[in-house]
Simulated scan of single mutants.
Amino acid sequence: MKHYFNPMSRAITTDWMLNELDAPHEQITIDFASNENNTAEFRKINPMGKLPALVDGDTVVTEVSAICAYLADKFPEKNLAPEVGSVERAAYYRYLFFACNTIEPAFALAACGLEHPDPVSAGWGDMPRVLATIEDMTPETDWALGEQFTAADVVFGGLLDFSITFKWLEPSPKVAAYVARIRQRPAYRATHSAFDAA
C-alpha cells in the first residue's frame, strides 16, 4: 500500500490509523510548498488534489473516513471495526460519517465567520445542533462503541482533537476527557508530534 501524506494535513488521521493497525505501507510525503498535490501525476490519484490518498494495488481510496473504514475492514484481526452485519456497525457508520459530513463543514464555515443562510437545507444544520450532537455522541468513558477502540474513534475523536487544537471547538469536560484519552494512545503519540506543535 502507498499512503500519500503530509504531516500538516488530514492525512495525519490516516497515518494514525495505519499505525494503530501496524499496517505495512509506503509513506509518500507530498510537499505542499512545491505544489506536488497539484501535479498531473497526483491528480490522477486524487482529482481533488487533496490528502490523504491510499493506493492498494489497483484500488484508490480517498477521504479520511473512507480510508479508515477500508483499512479497518482490510485488517479484521486488529478489531478496529465491528463485525459486518452486527448491530454495532450502525453506530460505527454514524460516527464515521457524522465527523466529516456534519462536524467539519459546520466548523469550517464557522472558522471563516460564516454560517449557512438556510440551516434547514444544510446537511449539518446549525452550530447549536452540531454541538449538542457532539456532546451526545461523545462517550463518558472508554470509546465511541464501548470498551473496544475502533476506527470510529480515529475519525470522530481525531476530528474533535483537530478542532480543539485549532480553536474550532471549546470542549466540554466530557469531550476534553475523551480527547485526552485519545492523546494517550501510543499510535496517536507516534504520529502527531508535528500536529501538536501547531
Rank of each mutant, 00 (worst) to 15 (best):
I164E: 04
A69E: 07
Y93C: 11
A151I: 10
T59N: 08
P173G: 11
D31L: 05
E36N: 07
S86I: 01
S121E: 14
A176I: 11
L71N: 05
F107P: 04
M137L: 13
G85R: 05
A180Q: 06
T165Y: 12
D58G: 06
D142R: 15
T39L: 05
T133N: 15
E135D: 11
V155G: 00
F42D: 00
G85W: 12
L51W: 10
F5T: 00
P76A: 04
I67K: 00
S121K: 15
D161L: 11
A177C: 09
L114K: 13
M137P: 02
Y95D: 01
F5N: 06
I164G: 01
T13H: 12
A122N: 10
S163F: 13
L159A: 08
T59A: 09
P105F: 13
E26A: 14
F166D: 04
E115S: 14
L21Q: 00
Y92C: 04
V60R: 00
P128K: 06
V84F: 12
P24A: 11
I103L: 06
F107W: 15
N35L: 09
I12P: 00
N37M: 09
C112I: 07
I103R: 15
K74E: 05
G125V: 10
V84Q: 14
E104R: 13
M137F: 08
T13M: 14
Q148A: 07
T150R: 12
G125M: 08
A110C: 02
D15N: 10
G85H: 06
L80Q: 11
D58L: 08
F42A: 01
E83A: 13
D15Q: 14
K44D: 14
A187Q: 02
S34K: 15
T29G: 04
C68D: 05
P52H: 08
E88H: 05
E88I: 02
N46G: 09
P52G: 08
E147Y: 03
M8N: 06
E88P: 03
R10W: 06
F166H: 11
R43S: 12
G85A: 03
I67W: 02
V154N: 01
Q184M: 12
L51S: 04
R183F: 04
V55D: 05
M48R: 12
T102C: 08
A69Q: 10
Q184D: 13
K174S: 01
L51M: 12
A152R: 04
P171M: 06
K174R: 10
H192M: 08
M137W: 09
I164V: 11
V84D: 07
Y188S: 02
A152G: 01
G123N: 14
G49A: 05
T191Q: 00
V179C: 07
Y70A: 00
N6I: 09
D56H: 07
A152F: 09
A177S: 10
I12M: 03
R189P: 11
A40D: 14
V55N: 01
E104Q: 14
V64F: 02
V155Q: 01
A132I: 02
T191W: 03
F98D: 02
A108I: 03
E140D: 08
P105C: 04
N38C: 09
H25Q: 04
E147W: 05
A106D: 03
K50P: 03
R89G: 03
W16S: 09
A40P: 02
